[in-house]
Amino acid sequence: MQYDSQFRTGYVAIVGRPNVGKSTLLNSLIRQKISITSRKAQTTRYRINGIFTDQHLQIIFVDTPGFQVRYKNRMNAAMNKVVTQSMQDVDVVLFVIEALRFDERDRLVLKLIPETAPVILVINKIDWLADKNRLLPFLDEMDKQFGYAAIIPVSAASQIQLTNLIDAIRPHLPENPPLFDADEITDRNVRFIAAELVREKLFRLIGDEIPYSTSVIVDQFTETEKLNTIYATILIDKPNQKAIIIGKGGEKLKLISSQARKEMETFFNKKVFLQIWIKVRSGWANDAHALKQLGHE
Rank of each mutant, 00 (worst) to 15 (best):
T214F: 03
F203K: 11
R204V: 10
D208N: 08
D208R: 09
F192L: 09
D208Y: 05
L205W: 05
T214W: 01
F192W: 12
R188V: 03
V216W: 04
A194C: 09
R204T: 13
T186I: 09
D187I: 03
I206H: 00
V216T: 13
R199P: 14
I193V: 13
S213G: 08
E209L: 08
I206M: 12
R188Q: 15
D208I: 01
T186Q: 02
D208M: 09
F203D: 13
V190T: 12
L205R: 14
I193D: 02
L197V: 10
L202C: 06
L205P: 06
R199C: 10
F203P: 14
D187Q: 02
I185T: 11
E196V: 13
E200T: 12
Y212R: 03
I217T: 10
I193A: 05
E200C: 14
R188P: 05
R191S: 13
D187N: 06
I193K: 07
A194N: 04
R199G: 10
E209S: 08
L197Q: 08
G207V: 01
K201C: 04
L202E: 04
E196K: 12
G207W: 03
P211Y: 00
T186C: 02
E200R: 11
P211H: 00
A195M: 07
S215M: 05
L197G: 04
D208V: 09
I185K: 14
S213K: 04
K201G: 01
I193C: 02
R191D: 07
F203H: 13
R191P: 01
T186P: 04
D208Q: 13
E200K: 12
D208T: 11
L197E: 08
V198C: 13
G207Q: 05
R199V: 11
